[in-house]
């Protein structure tokens, strides 16, 4: 009996000290170190425009609808790209709803991109796992190339080069997949339009 009540006391005291060390001191220490070593990442990799207004984050995709922008993947997060409701469709492969949604996506992509190749890249027609996927495959970008070229009056060659420049390759050649950040690609497109009109004032503010 004595031994057991001692165990209760030990458990309570142990919970107390370990909560302070692992629940408070440890995250605090990481936060302080991260703040000084890598402030941009620690604060959420925010992307600002020229005036310093936060227009996005590398950690979240956005909805793009205009013809002159490259579009992101379909999103199941809330009403689309809601970072407070991250998640996938959770529809199984034999779900009617999945097939209907995919059919609608395909139809929409076909209407928007009449000059696009015959087959649609899988990522462009399907919802991502987080609903916040900030990236698309280079194939999915190329699929939209003709549409963006028409709307922006930029040449296909220029845009093709831009997609190539914006493509992030897998680390060491095999860790991950080649991909393009949609927001950064669109910023680069806008920059290119800006440069075409005002070549002298052109600053490559966007990598």
């Amino acid at each position: 009996m004595n031994k057991r009540s001692a165990t209760w006391g030990q458990s309570l005291l142990y919970t107390f000290w370990s909560v302070i060390v692992f629940g408070l001191l440890y995250p605090l220490m990481i936060a302080i170190l991260a703040h000084y070593l890598m402030p941009i990442q620690a604060d959420g990799s925010l992307i600002r425009d020229k005036h310093g207004v936060i227009i996005g984050s590398s950690l979240s995709g956005q909805l793009f609808t205009k013809q002159g922008y490259f579009h992101s993947r379909p999103s199941a997060a809330g009403n689309g790209y809601d970072p407070t409701q991250s998640g996938g469709s959770n529809l199984g492969p034999t779900s009617n709803k999945l097939i209907e949604t995919t059919r609608a996506n395909v139809l929409h992509l076909r209407q928007e991109n009449p000059q696009a190749p015959a087959t649609i890249p899988a990522d462009l027609a399907s919802t991502s796992a987080s609903g916040l996927d900030p990236e698309i495959s280079p194939e999915a970008a190329t699929f939209q190339l003709a549409r963006v070229a028409n709307a922006t009056q930029l040449s296909g060659t220029q845009l093709r080069a831009l997609i190539q420049l914006q493509t992030i390759q897998p680390e060491l050649g095999f860790i991950g997949e080649p991909r393009v950040n949609v927001l950064k690609l669109n910023l680069a497109v806008q920059n290119l339009i800006f440069c075409t009109h005002l070549p002298r004032d052109c600053r490559t503010s966007v990598k």
Partner: peptide, 18 residues
């Protein structure tokens, strides 16, 4: 079933591009 709709490649539903 998705391939029949004209979509190429593996099953990317619920997966991230990276």
């Amino acid at each position: 079933i998705v391939h029949q709709l004209g979509v190429a490649g593996g099953n990317m539903e619920g997966k991230e591009v990276r």
